[in-house]
Design a protein around this nucleic acid. Structure first.
Lengths: 146, 146
DNA sequence: CTGAATGCAAACAATTTGCATTCAT
DNA sequence: ATGAATGCAAATTGTTTGCATTCAG
């Protein structure tokens, strides 16, 4: 699931209409790469195409996530983050001190995923993963402060 | 950290004033046991003490979590959940289909916690953990639906 | 041409804030 | 008596909705 045309074709096949605003929003997501909030995306899109409406952005993001073209992650910042889905799942460590978000190798999460399935028959959706805590730098800072 | 007086004493020692509203909010949290949103707590408290203000509830919850008397969990429902801190940490599996929240044994999380520390020096705050996915029942339902 | 998608303005939910008043210490 | 905490009303933030208009297919 990547590349403009592939996605656009998928949408068309599924019965969605390919409007200019949808294309523009998709492009913004692809250009950025990392996480963005709806509001980030709106701002970015607005910069070049001032006629695009905020609700269109929200509705499009909703649609894209239902189609698994983008993934939604709740990083505990009061608003959800979006990014393009990728083949290699990755996860997020969120520093509660400085707010920095780092990525976690999927391999570290797999054992947990398996044990949850074995013990609780719970199928963890690991795309939707955010781990909160303290990054290395902030631990150092805290230690020195004492 | 449990029992009315222990907490009340801790607060007083730390320089907080022990107001009736704070005591009432604490009691509501203790009576309930499980997670509650700020709004849940407000409603419950209001039922018996209608004079208590909404902002007082929010401010008190804020204070209690800063003092580690309660823990905050973002279960991805648009509003944060609170519950009394306990000695045995536990975590949450949130079913994205039916919304049910189950608890996860801490033992399953420990390996992850360790590997994050080893590989990224990231100190995961595991009190703040929510794992999203599909519970057993909803997996069954989904399978049958197809 | 036709219904899906957009734009707009208004509604909403959860939370926060400024400020005058009250009350725990 | 003094500043911390409360109550109140208003503001903010992020998001959703109803409805008339537009435009992709």
């Amino acid at each position: 699931m990547s590349g403009h045309t592939t996605i656009v074709n998928h949408l068309r096949r599924t019965g969605y209409r390919v409007t200019p605003q949808r294309v523009i929003i998709l492009e913004a997501l692809q250009r950025q790469g990392g996480h963005m909030t709806a509001e980030d995306i709106y701002a970015r899109v607005r910069a070049e195409h001032p006629y695009i409406n905020r609700s269109t952005v929200y509705r499009t993001l909703d649609m894209l996530s239902k189609e698994n073209i983008i993934t939604v992650t709740d990083l505990g910042k009061g608003s959800v983050h979006y990014e393009m889905s990728s083949d290699e799942p990755h996860h997020h460590m969120v520093c509660q001190q400085c707010g920095k978000v780092e990525e976690v190798d999927h391999a570290l999460l797999e054992p947990l995923q398996n044990s949850l399935l074995r013990k609780y028959k719970f199928k963890a959706n690991i795309e939707h993963f955010a781990i909160f805590g303290l990054c290395h730098k902030c631990q150092e800072k805290l230690r020195k402060a004492r």
